[in-house]
Simulated scan of single mutants.
Amino acid sequence: MHADIVVLPGDGIGPEVATAAVAVLKSIAQLYDHDFQFQEHDIGGVAIDRHGVPLPDATTTACQQADAVLLGAVGGPKWSDPNAKVRPEQGLLAIRKALGLFANLRPVRPHGAALDASPIKPHLLAGVDIVVVRELTGGIYFGEKTRTAEAASDLCSYSVAEIERVMRSAFKLARARRGKVTSVDKANVLETSRLWRDVATRIGREEFPDVALEHQLVDSMAMHLLAKPREYDVIVTENMFGDILTDEASMLAGSLGLLPSASLGEEGKVGLYEPIHGSAPDIAGKGIANPYATILSAAMLLRHSLGLEEEAQAIERAVGAALEDKAFTADLAPPGNALSTTQATEAVLSRLGVPA
């Protein structure tokens, strides 16, 4: 199989973890006789430094023409002035919009060997297997913004069509899993959430009667997600709530460095794959970043954009085997026992069976 993959290393530890994922993808191509072609482009802070904008036109065009996009991370203290007119995160929001990516899938599946890294009691984590579906292109992040010396506002807005399409993604995913959707909102306060709940109820009743649907307020969901995570299958929510809840959910797995994501649009369109962690500027360039989330994002790329399920599972098994053998980076390992980014990547490659 031939596939053109655009790599957006970005900022901070982004280039380090992206390099690790590309090495794994190249090995998969070798093992399964595929032809993967890679090209790098700028996004985020590095793009601001080189081009004056966080998302150059050349990057957008290359991504639109690719079969899939792999992203490292964006942002850092160099560009963190909240009053700056140009910020790295604008590049991430813009590429999602340009590619029509409206559903962000974030799986959370704690690995038995890494349970000690989680602050949650191990008996609560056994058997946890959740996918959070976060709406990506609407809500308060994209609404009209105003600011004066005396006040500021951010408009949260959702259309029926925006809610319908992410709901359908969540219900389809649940139908192929354990058949349960939990829709998270703040319908006791917000009109956008009341619309969200109405649309979710209608889509579930009319189009997916075989899938169980429950509603949960976001504040209570934040509690239940840690107190009884085994009860959840697919969780679907709006942009900001999803952003917050998935960082919380990372504590179930023990580290942000273990959680991948896939940003998807209409079927057949380009998908974007990235770890959910940030650019971690405090450890950038030290060679100690955890590459597993980005490698697992590459597995999601193979599954969702290229239809290569066997190859995706091979990567996931290899990462699982590395974790089982305590191939931990600093975010997971006891002091003095941590592997470098390169060593962790090699641990995955060796378990894939890559010839030396």
Rank of each mutant, 00 (worst) to 15 (best):
L301A: 10
L332C: 02
A126C: 12
S255Q: 02
I315S: 04
S297V: 04
P88D: 07
K121Y: 05
L301Y: 00
P54Y: 02
D11R: 06
S263L: 05
S220C: 12
E316H: 11
L31G: 01
V181E: 04
M1S: 08
M251F: 04
L306A: 14
S153N: 13
S80C: 04
V236C: 10
Q37I: 07
D210R: 09
A18S: 15
E231H: 15
R50P: 06
H51N: 15
P260K: 13
I95S: 00
D129K: 03
A284Y: 05
E89Q: 10
Q216W: 05
A312L: 02
A262N: 00
E162S: 15
K172M: 10
H215C: 11
S250D: 09
C63Y: 02
A187C: 13
L225C: 07
L339F: 09
L136E: 03
A161L: 08
H224G: 10
G287N: 07
T341K: 04
L99I: 06
D331W: 04
Y141Q: 04
A253Q: 08
A249I: 14
L252F: 12
G268W: 07
S157T: 11
A284E: 07
G287I: 01
T341M: 05
L217P: 04
F328C: 02
P77I: 09
E206A: 14
N239W: 10
S340W: 03
A73G: 07
L71S: 02
F38Q: 09
S157R: 15
H123I: 09
M221N: 00
V46W: 06
A66H: 10
A47F: 00
